[in-house]
């Protein structure tokens, strides 16, 4: 009888103790022994829940390891703004992890960088870092967008091309360089910050008044030359475009991305000069950061820094003015 009881106890110990030991080690002992916090985030397409958990709270100064895994299709993981964290693609069953220690409080977003479903752009999660005093600093407002609002500019207004009516894809930048050098252009036009608040079309109208003798074609070339960014876009900017914009706007800005058919409004065509000549740089900037109203353009203000956004605006100009 006694031997039978000890056998029963042994069976119960094995049946209950084994899972307890394994799970207890994984979720109890390991986090206790580890000096840093480990958060496992399971990624799935937004239709089945997106990131889980979608919100993570950490304290400033606390070392945290974020471990991302995918449960359905390939996702890509990046954390922004300003952290420069891009973990690349996570195939189902694989993990990618990063250890972070924040100096200060702030709000960050981890997001998917690979098209994973029609709702891919909704796949975002929040990383809240509480400051040492227990508060979370609010996300700073964008001065550029506030200036636009103060100026009364409607970011979503449709473009009204005045001068360029047909696609002027024959613009010659080399001709523009010689024309711009020959004309004694106002100093403002050489100022990149001034150019951001004006459309190429406005400048063409201005130049038409200043130099009535010069042909429209030459003036358009000169304006294109002025707006063309002097530096080649960086690899990081090209990567940001490819990960976040190309799905709808197309790899080369022709508005022919594979997801273009899914949007309610046809994605903007950056190679269309008639359209781009009516755009202000800061309006493009605001559109990227705030998103479009009524179109399916998502907001990227919580993902990119202002510098990254300006680099993307330059990237759009270099796509159109080639």
């Amino acid at each position: 009888m006694r031997r039978e009881w000890s056998a029963r106890i042994a069976v119960v110990l094995i049946l209950a103790g084994l899972p307890l030991a394994v799970l207890g080690y994984q979720y109890g002992l390991l986090p206790l022994l580890s000096s840093e916090r480990i958060v496992t985030v399971a990624a799935s397409i937004p239709e089945t829940g997106g990131f889980s958990p979608a919100s993570i709270q950490v304290r400033a100064g606390e070392a945290v390891t974020l471990r991302f895994t995918s449960v359905d299709v390939t996702h890509g993981i990046a954390i922004g703004p300003g952290l420069g964290v891009d973990l690349g693609q996570v195939d189902p069953g694989k993990t990618r992890e990063i250890s972070l220690t924040f100096e200060q409080g702030g709000i960050y977003t981890f997001y998917c960088t690979v098209w994973c479903s029609p709702n891919h752009w909704r796949m975002r999660g929040i990383l809240e870092v509480t400051d040492v005093d227990g508060t979370i600093p609010p996300f700073p407002p964008d001065p550029v967008i506030e200036l636009l609002v103060a100026e009364g500019i409607n970011i979503d207004a449709a473009s009204t091309p005045v001068l360029l009516q047909s696609s002027a894809s024959l613009l010659s930048l080399t001709n523009g360089a010689t024309v711009a050098a020959e004309l004694n252009l106002p100093a403002d036009l050489h100022n990149a910050v001034w150019r951001r608040t004006h459309t190429p079309q406005q400048v063409m109208l201005l130049l038409t008044m200043l130099y009535p003798a010069v042909s429209q074609r030459d003036l358009a070339d000169a304006v294109a030359y002025l707006w063309r960014p002097s530096e080649e876009p960086s690899e990081r900017t090209a990567q940001l475009y490819e990960q976040n914009c190309a799905a709808c706007h197309g790899q080369f800005g022709q508005g022919d991305g594979f997801a273009a058919a899914l949007t309610t409004v046809q994605p903007s065509v950056f190679t269309d000069l008639v359209y781009m000549f009516t755009r202000r740089g800061d309006v493009l900037y605001a559109k990227i950061r705030r998103g479009g109203m009524g179109t399916d353009m998502p907001n990227f203000g919580t993902l990119f820094t202002p510098e990254e956004t300006w680099a993307l605006v330059d990237f759009l100009w270099s796509l159109s003015l080639q």
Partner: peptide, 25 residues
Amino acid sequence: LTSSDVVHGFYLDGYDVQQRIEPGI
């Protein structure tokens, strides 16, 4: 090779062809 939704791979048996295809590229 193109993909129009998620990341796929193209593996051709017998010819040792293996390529990862990301949507849009």
